[in-house]
Structure formats: C-alpha cells, structure tokens
C-alpha cells in the first residue's frame, strides 16, 4: 500500500515539475502575444497585460512593407528548396544505387565537409562572392543549394535510399529502364518521406537565416532584395521606419514570421523529429 502511495507521489511530483518547466519555456511566447497586441502608447509601460489592446503593431508591419520581405524570403526559400531537393537526391542516388570507381573516396570527402565549421566557411566565402560580383544578390543564398544541397542532406537521403530494395531497380533495368529513369520513376517516389523532411528543414533554414543575408545581401542598392531577417534588422535601424523599433511592431512581425514554422512543425512533427534523430543517433 505504502509503495503504491509513494509511487503516486513521485509521479505527481514529476508532472508538477514538468508543468512548471513548460510554463517557463512558454513564457517568452506568451509575452510575444501580449506585446504584439499592445497599443502604441503603452509599449513602454511597466504593466503585465496591455492597458489597451490594439492591432496597430500589425498595421505598422504591413505599412512598412513586411509582405515584400515575406515575398523575397519565399522566393529565396523556393529556389533553395528546389536546388536542395534535386541535387541532394541525385547525389544520394549516385552514392547508393549505382557504382563507379572511387565512389567511397568521393563519399568520404563529402562526409568530411560535415566537419567544417559553417560560420568560418561563410566568412571565407565572402571574398569569393565579392570577386564574382555576387554580393548584394540572391546568388550566394541559392546557388550553392544546386551543388549537392549540403552533406547532411545527401547523407540522410542516401541512408533512406539504401532501404529501397535493389531487386526493384534490377527489375526495372531488365525492362530496359536507364539509371536516370530508375532514379526518377522508382527510387525518388519511394523516398518521399525523407525528401519531405529535407524540404521542410531547408525551408525553415532559409526562413530564419540571419547570418547568410547579413553577410552577402546587405549592400546598398539591394534593399528591394532583403529577406525577412535582414529586412527586419535593417528597418529597425532605419529612422524612416521608426515604428519598427517598437516592441509591439517587432513582436507582431515575430508572430507572422513564426506562424509558418509552427504550422509546419505540427503538420510534420514526426518527419522532423525522425529526421533530426536519424542524422545523429544512427549517423
């Protein structure tokens, strides 16, 4: 009897602690909502709930051109997603379903690039993009995606492709299909779960990317190309958009920017978590 009581107490304590932790983690998001709907006159008032509720934060965000930034970001993301999906699946197929001389060496080199520190590489790429005249354009953000789509993605898709039975490919080959047809018509359709994961993770990466645009896009004359992260940052420093320094405008934009991420997260929660763990635990 006492053992049962003790177990219940422990379980109850566990739920209480977890609830407190979750409340703590949700607190910033809760405050985001409060701030986004606070009226302009009260954004610097020391009160917990807004004295006056208002959607003027969203209005300033729209008037200041937030949709242009959204459109730019969607365009960059779309190009990057296409590039990543096409080239990472092609490469993964090349590393899993066909054979060529030196395959393991090439694969080793691709995997070795995983170890390279990303920000260091971005800093070193700057001079190259500068010399190519790519600074202030979308090229540095999109073009590399078409060249392999990143070692992580190649690795993940390859792991998945290996589970496609070779007998299926053999059968198609006997029927006269060439390697590209087998890739396009047989292997790719069977790999859609992992391709979906790669596309979503690429979208989230582009949508939230700050360092890339900050390094390569922030040039005078390219304001019309700014993505969300960079646009918000630059406008909040620009006296012309003084409202964008207000917490209510910033948090209104924040909610708009977070919305697609949260929707995608809830729709593809399983894909996302499986994908993340596949890259680490099994890798």
């Amino acid at each position: 009897m006492t053992a049962v009581v003790k177990r219940r107490v422990v379980l109850g304590a566990k739920y209480v602690v977890l609830s407190v932790v979750c409340l703590l983690f949700l607190f910033p998001i809760f405050v985001m909502f409060l701030r986004a709907f606070t009226a302009d006159d009260f954004v610097f008032a020391s009160v917990f709930f807004p004295v006056e509720w208002s959607i003027s934060g969203f209005r300033y965000a729209v008037d200041g051109g937030v949709f242009r930034l959204v459109l730019n970001t969607v365009a960059v993301a779309a190009l990057t997603i296409v590039g990543t999906a096409v080239s990472s699946t092609l490469c993964a197929y090349g590393f899993s379903k066909v054979k060529f001389k030196g395959q393991s060496v090439v694969f080793g080199v691709v995997i070795a690039t995983l170890m390279l520190p990303a920000v260091c590489m971005q800093l070193q790429l700057y001079s190259q993009y500068f010399n190519w005249g790519w600074i202030g354009t979308w090229l540095p953000l999109c073009v590399p995606a078409f060249f392999g789509g990143g070692a992580t993605n190649i690795f993940l898709v390859r792991q998945y492709m290996k589970s496609v039975p070779n007998s299926v490919c053999e059968a198609a080959k006997i029927d006269g299909a060439n390697k590209f047809t087998i890739y396009l018509r047989i292997v790719l359709p069977m790999c859609m779960p992992i391709v979906t994961y790669v596309m979503i993770i690429t979208f989230l990466g582009c949508w939230n990317d700050l360092m890339g645009p900050l390094m390569y896009l922030q040039a005078s004359g390219s304001e019309h190309l700014y993505t969300l992260s960079l646009g918000i940052y630059m406008k909040s420093l620009d006296p012309e958009f003084w409202q964008w320094q207000f917490p209510n405008v910033q948090m209104a934009i924040g909610l708009l920017m977070m919305l697609p991420c949260v929707v995608l997260f809830f729709l593809f929660q399983k894909n996302l978590i499986d994908g993340v763990t596949m890259g680490s635990v099994k890798g």
Binding site: M32, W207, N208, C261
Partner: peptide, 21 residues
Amino acid sequence: TLVYLPVLIPMIISGYLWNDL
C-alpha cells in the same frame, strides 16, 4: 512539444523579444 516550441522562434525575433523582456 511544449519544451521544443521556443526553438521555433526565429533568431532575429528572439533577439528583439529578449531585449524587450
């Protein structure tokens, strides 16, 4: 899920949020 949610706040927004908080 709840513990994961703050990870979805974009980096730039998280800066402004914490600045305000």
